[in-house]
Design a protein around this nucleic acid. Structure first.
Lengths: 111, 111
DNA sequence: TACCGGTAGATAGCAATACCGAATACCGCG
DNA sequence: CGCGGTATTCGGTATTGCTATCTACCGGTA
């Protein structure tokens, strides 16, 4: 993953996890795999777990511990009300940013 | 500016400045004003100058010192070849990210 | 039994970067 | 000479993703 992409993920990864959890409750390993399928191949698990921990500490997600057939018990994350709010805010900010960038992009093309 | 937005800018601000400089050469004060017009009202000058310094140190921009009628000499930044490359890479990464996010967004809406 | 691979989660230390606040430099004007 | 507006710079802080490593649990296999 390019360093530039790494920096871009800052500020987006959290929202992406919220969005992914909103789609359907999941545990960390699952989410990591899904995001890698999406194309973020170099995303490391440690990062995802750290973000999930943050979401948990901020009370944006609910957690259910589910025994796993393989490995330690899974922590299945699901979005709660506050998480939904945060996700909505994320999309709003994302829309704002993309609109501005689109503007810069098209202006740049003209030049 | 929301904290979330602040974090989103990480990794984007630099590309935005490159794009803005590509549009037309400008100095820091100018760029700050322009971005504020674009909607980033709370963007602080100190931040913009810090990014410009980084661009300079990485050799992505050329600098011409122009005496100003008011205040110290202006540093007018213009994009050079390496800066153009970096900008292209930025747009490529941006496209990648927005496509994935768009996917997450629409999937979320369906749910 | 003992080991290994895959699943699942946690943690410590590091680097990058945007923010805030303050300082500095320069000019014209009163 | 000080004041206000323009223009740039700097030091310190917080957040965040990465790397690397560690623990834990299970099934299969020698």
């Amino acid at each position: 993953m390019s360093k530039q992409m790494t920096e871009m993920l800052k500020g987006f990864l959290e929202g992406m996890l919220l969005a992914e959890i909103a789609r359907r409750p999941a545990h960390g390993y699952d989410i990591t795999a899904r995001l890698r399928e999406l194309g973020f191949t170099d995303l490391v698990e440690g990062t995802v777990y750290a973000v999930l921990l943050r979401l948990e500490q901020r009370g944006l997600v609910d957690i259910e511990k589910v025994p796993s057939e393989k490995g330690p018990p899974r922590k299945v994350y699901s979005l709660n009300g506050r998480g939904r709010e945060s996700l909505d805010e994320f999309w709003a900010n994302w829309t704002f940013l993309t609109e501005r960038l689109e503007q810069l992009h098209t202006e740049g093309e003209q030049a």
